[in-house]
């Protein structure tokens, strides 16, 4: 464990807590894409399949349980909670996210580190996570004004993988044989997808005005 990875995990944890806080306290998921939340639930489900078989550390298992629990409960809130589900704008959140899953699965079947059931699903979860934010960014451009909590959620979600990139660089230089191209490229693509969001988020913060992505 290094400071970059810890910062990344804490930023990731903060992002899911901000979103859970928003949905649980103001009972609203306006501006949040259910499609992205469903994709993230699938990302964690396929990435943490080994939670029962391979034990790394208490921290590792605890965080896996938190990410699994939070992502599935967010989906549950948005789909089934009587008050929250009414605030979900389904006619704006129309990204065909199932079409994202197939290419990720095909790519995982082609490019992976080991051709085993767990490893292919783990690689699938990496590719899927890289594109999982797309429905949310598309929804952001459609809904003119977004509230601060949703903006903070996306900012933290984008930032965590940026910390992981620093972690991979650190591990590359400090651990022999630590080379994972697939993880690195997927993580880089994922972070780059947030580039324009980060730019407009910074502008809105600097000019102290509402965050608005150009249509």
């Amino acid at each position: 464990m290094n400071i970059f990875r810890l910062a990344g995990d804490m930023t990731h944890l903060a992002s899911v807590l901000v979103l859970l806080l928003k949905i649980h306290t103001i009972k609203s998921c306006a501006g949040v894409s259910l499609k992205t939340q469903e994709l993230y639930a699938i990302v964690f489900a396929t990435r943490y399949l080994d939670i029962l078989t391979s034990f790394v550390s208490i921290y590792n298992t605890l965080m896996k349980l938190i990410f699994l629990g939070s992502s599935f409960s967010i989906v549950w809130y948005m789909k089934y909670h009587k008050t929250v589900r009414r605030t979900y704008d389904r006619d704006q959140d129309t990204f065909r996210h199932w079409f994202l899953m197939l290419p990720c699965l095909l790519l995982a079947l082609l490019i992976h580190e080991k051709f085993t059931f767990f490893e292919v699903l783990w690689t699938f979860s990496l590719y899927l996570e890289a594109v999982a934010i797309l429905p949310q960014l598309v929804l952001l451009q459609r809904t003119r004004n977004i509230d601060n909590l949703t903006g903070q959620y996306i900012f933290l979600l984008g930032g965590y993988r940026g910390f992981y990139i620093l972690n991979w660089i650190y591990r590359y230089f400090t651990e022999p044989h630590y080379v994972h191209w697939i993880t690195w490229i997927a993580g880089l693509v994922q972070t780059l997808l947030y580039a324009d969001f980060f730019y407009y988020y910074f502008l809105s913060w600097k000019n102290n005005k509402k965050l608005q992505l150009p249509a």
């Binding site: 990875r5 995990d9 990731h12 080994d50 391979s54 790394v56 590792n60 965080m63 896996k64 990410f67 580190e113 080991k114 783990w122 992981y164 972690n167 044989h177 993880t183």
Partner: peptide, 10 residues
């Protein structure tokens, strides 16, 4: 090597 491959990151 095997331990190396085990995914120790979240």
């Amino acid at each position: 090597k095997e331990a190396e491959n085990a995914h120790d990151e979240l």
